[in-house]
Simulated assay, not measured.
Amino acid sequence: MTTASIQMIRKEGEKLTTQGKGKYRSEQTKDKISAYLYISPFFIIFAIIGLYPAAFSLYLAFQKWNGLGEMTFVGLQNFSVVLNDPLFWKSVYNTIIIGLMGTAPQIIIGIILAFILNQAFLKFKNTFRAMIFMPYITSMVAVALVFGVFFSNNDTALANYMLNLFGMDSMNWKTHEWGAKIAISVMVFWRWIGYNTIIYLAGLQSIPKDLYEAARIDGANIVQQLRFITIPLLKPFIILTVFFSTVGALQLFTEPTVFLGASAFSRTEAMTVVMYLYRDAFSLQSFGTGSATAIILLVIIIIFSALNTFLTSGIGKKRKEYKA
């Protein structure tokens, strides 16, 4: 075989190799394009419904606009108006108080309920789990009707009847400073306790049963098992629920609006930050201050979420013991 023939064979081989690589790369590119096309609807919907409104709200925070006329750039004036408004700080106070009263007990009682529902001796477990989770899927209209009757201003209402049993006077729950907060906190607790309980129950079922059996052999009672086994191993689930509860509490809007009805935005006893934002934007037609309130609320949520996550991350850590 001559040298020219060998060179020709090599060229043909290199040509075929290059064509194969090109075909492989083109197929790989097609697969990538197909993958992006399959997931593109989510990103398109997210950009339209989530990203664009957020960016537009950030832009509006520096504008003066009533929703119809021309926008006027005002810089940080909207933030100054909001931060110097006593009603805004009142709404922040209401939001924090209602959030603490409505969500903090969920963590403690949710863990206890999940621990009970996870016991082997309990009968009709599925029935109790469905009953506890039922408030979460109940319509807010039905919730408002039930709690409207429960916290009615009449002496025959269940809440006032219970107060009278303890020698206290009846209360106007929708106009009283603490009455409105207590009623809304009870609504929040009743609606979300089942959600947290189910999450904790899922976490409990991931804990090996051998740990509880070993603890019982060592003489640990139920309280000690809950303290030294359940809570430390539920730490990731507790952090998750605390984070969601913090964000949900600071965004509280539905419960107070539905419970207070027509007077929700005209009274200050239970006005939350989101209600203040809604009132500025859609009642007073001040979209600039409303958007500024949304930005401030975002900062507040980040601060409180980081703080609560940091505090709950210390659950289950053992203190160092130093021997003398």
Score class of each variant (00 low, 15 high):
Leu37Val: 13
Leu37Pro: 13
Leu37Trp: 08
Tyr38Ile: 15
Tyr38Glu: 14
Tyr38Asp: 10
Tyr38Leu: 14
Tyr38Val: 15
Ile39His: 04
Ile39Thr: 15
Ile39Ser: 09
Ile39Ala: 03
Ser40Thr: 15
Ser40Asp: 10
Ser40Pro: 13
Pro41Tyr: 11
Pro41Val: 11
Pro41His: 12
Pro41Leu: 06
Phe42Asp: 02
Phe42Glu: 03
Phe42Asn: 02
Phe43Asn: 02
Phe43Ile: 11
Phe43Tyr: 09
Phe43Trp: 13
Phe43Lys: 04
Ile44Ala: 04
Ile44Lys: 08
Ile44Cys: 02
Ile45Glu: 03
Ile45Met: 12
Ile45Pro: 00
Ile45Gly: 01
Phe46Cys: 02
Phe46Lys: 01
Phe46Glu: 00
Ala47Ile: 13
Ala47Gly: 09
Ala47Ser: 14
Ala47Pro: 10
Ile48Tyr: 08
Ile49Glu: 02
Gly50Phe: 15
Gly50Asp: 04
Gly50Ser: 08
Gly50Leu: 08
Gly50His: 06
Leu51Val: 10
Leu51Gln: 01
Leu51Pro: 03
Leu51Met: 06
Tyr52Met: 02
Tyr52Val: 04
Tyr52His: 03
Tyr52Phe: 14
Tyr52Glu: 01
Tyr52Asn: 01
Pro53Lys: 04
Pro53Ile: 05
Pro53Ser: 04
Pro53Trp: 10
Pro53Met: 05
Ala54Arg: 02
Ala54Met: 15
Ala54Asp: 05
Ala54Asn: 07
Ala54Gly: 05
Ala54Trp: 13
Ala55Asp: 05
Ala55Asn: 04
Ala55Phe: 11
Ala55Lys: 03
Phe56Pro: 00
Phe56Asp: 09
Phe56Gly: 01
Phe56Trp: 08
Phe56Glu: 09
Phe56Leu: 03
Ser57Phe: 07
Ser57Pro: 00
Ser57Thr: 11
Ser57Glu: 09
Leu58Phe: 11
Leu58Lys: 04
Tyr59Glu: 12
Tyr59Pro: 05
Tyr59Asp: 13
Leu60Met: 14
Leu60Arg: 12
Leu60Thr: 06
Leu60Asp: 12
Leu60Ile: 03
Leu60Asn: 13
Leu60Gly: 01
Leu60Trp: 12
Ala61Val: 07
Ala61Glu: 11
Ala61Cys: 07
Phe62Trp: 15
Phe62Asn: 05
Gln63Asn: 08
Gln63Ile: 01
Gln63Ala: 02
Gln63Asp: 04
Gln63Tyr: 10
Gln63Val: 00
Lys64Tyr: 11
Lys64Gln: 13
Lys64His: 10
Lys64Ala: 06
Lys64Ser: 06
Trp65Ala: 00
Trp65Gly: 00
Trp65Leu: 01
Trp65Phe: 02
Trp65Tyr: 03
Trp65Val: 00
Asn66Ser: 07
Asn66Phe: 09
Gly67Glu: 14
Gly67Tyr: 13
Gly67His: 12
Gly67Ala: 12
Leu68Arg: 15
Leu68Ser: 11
Gly69Val: 06
Gly69Ile: 07
Gly69Phe: 05
Glu70Tyr: 15
Glu70Phe: 14
Glu70Met: 10
Glu70His: 15
Met71Asn: 08
Met71Gln: 14
Met71Cys: 00
Met71Gly: 02
Met71Leu: 04
Thr72Val: 08
Thr72Tyr: 15
Thr72Pro: 00
Phe73His: 12
Phe73Cys: 02
Phe73Val: 03
Val74Thr: 09
Val74Arg: 13
Val74Ala: 09
Val74Trp: 15
Val74Ser: 07
